[in-house]
Amino acid sequence: MIETPEPRVLSLSLESVDDATERLLKKYHVHLYCHSGKLDFVFNEEHMTCASGQFLFWFAESKWNLVEVSKDFKSTVLLVEKDFLIDNVPDQGWSINAQLHSRVFPVKDINSKAEKEKILNNFKWLILRFQESEHRFYEEALKLQMRLFILEMWHSFANEYERRRHSLQTGTLYERFIKLLQQHCLTKREVQFYANELNITPKYLNYLCKIHSDRTASDWIHSHAKERIILLLQNTNLNISEIADEMCFSSTSFFTRYVKKLFGLTPTDFRARLT
């Protein structure tokens, strides 16, 4: 029996989420605009809400669980198949920052009607391109539309990322630590570095992390480093030595030992699992 491949792109008008829908959402990359009501969920062990006028992005197979959907919840959802999105990410140096940001801050405020319309039009154009299967250059056109879609999302991300970066000094110490991780986790993997940036001791930083998240500062650092390593290893244009340099390891052997400690595999073996 030949299995029918799942659609690479799907559009939904969502007002409730049953078990089957939740399984579908977890299988795809999810782009959701909330028109009214709210959706409560747990994401990476943290309770979050996507409410009216907000945009939500989940990577496929992210660790999230639905808590509650309000009775007046209405949303427009675009689903993109896991490999199709990843395979068409434009080769931009800061794309890893964009992806990592979404893994930590999945909910985004939409501040204007124009921005809302731009996002929904972006959904529509990708769906229309996907449905135009008789196009003479269908695959090429669809891939280009996917890349344009990502660039538009990155544009929205970049504005928010800048706002978060500029507000670094206004949050609590714990919030500032998480934001510092966003900026420096590619190359800084020692608790002492972040404690120095916050003008506190490593012991106190660990205490703050434990009371806010029940995780140590080292846990947070290694978690972010894992995300970076996975994203870099998925980029087959980079060899292992180049990734080690990108993350400021003194040698490829040190990088290999670090990866083996985190994943139980060498970078080469772990990359093979990702492909």
Rank of each mutant, 00 (worst) to 15 (best):
Q234F: 03
H155M: 08
E160K: 12
S241K: 09
D87A: 05
V259P: 15
S11F: 10
R136H: 03
S13R: 12
I178F: 01
F59T: 08
P267A: 00
F137G: 05
M48H: 12
N235G: 02
D83V: 08
Q169G: 07
H184W: 06
S253G: 06
N88Y: 02
E46N: 12
I150K: 04
K188W: 04
E3F: 11
P106I: 03
L100S: 04
H101W: 01
R8K: 14
I119Q: 06
D40P: 06
V67N: 00
S112Y: 01
S223Q: 13
F177Q: 14
L148T: 15
R165Q: 05
E242H: 03
Q169S: 13
F249W: 00
V77H: 02
N237V: 09
Q183T: 09
E45N: 10
Y161M: 09
L173H: 04
T187I: 08
S11C: 02
K27R: 04
L205H: 14
G37K: 07
H212S: 12
R176D: 08
L24C: 13
T216Y: 13
A217L: 12
E160L: 13
L56N: 03
R136E: 07
E46L: 11
I150W: 08
L265A: 05
V67H: 00
S253R: 02
M146C: 13
G93K: 04
W94N: 08
L56H: 03
I221G: 05
S241Y: 05
T172W: 01
L198K: 09
D91V: 13
R163V: 05
A195M: 09
A217E: 15
L180T: 15
N239Q: 05
I150P: 11
R271Q: 01
N65C: 00
L66W: 00
R164T: 15
K179F: 10
E242C: 10
I200S: 08
L32F: 04
P106Q: 07
W125F: 12
A195I: 10
N44A: 07
K260P: 10
E175Y: 11
I200A: 08
E227W: 05
E22F: 02
S156D: 09
G37R: 07
C50D: 02
C50S: 06
L128I: 04
W125M: 09
I240T: 15
N196L: 09
P202K: 12
P106R: 03
R136P: 09
R176V: 15
E6R: 04
N97Q: 07
V77G: 00
H212P: 07
Q183K: 12
S223V: 07
T216E: 14
I127K: 03
V191Y: 03
N199G: 08
R103G: 10
R163I: 11
L265N: 09
M153V: 10
K63W: 00
T172L: 14
T236P: 08
A141C: 14
A244W: 00
Q145F: 07
Y28T: 09
K226A: 03
I243R: 01
E160Q: 13
C209T: 11
L39E: 04
S11T: 11
R136C: 01
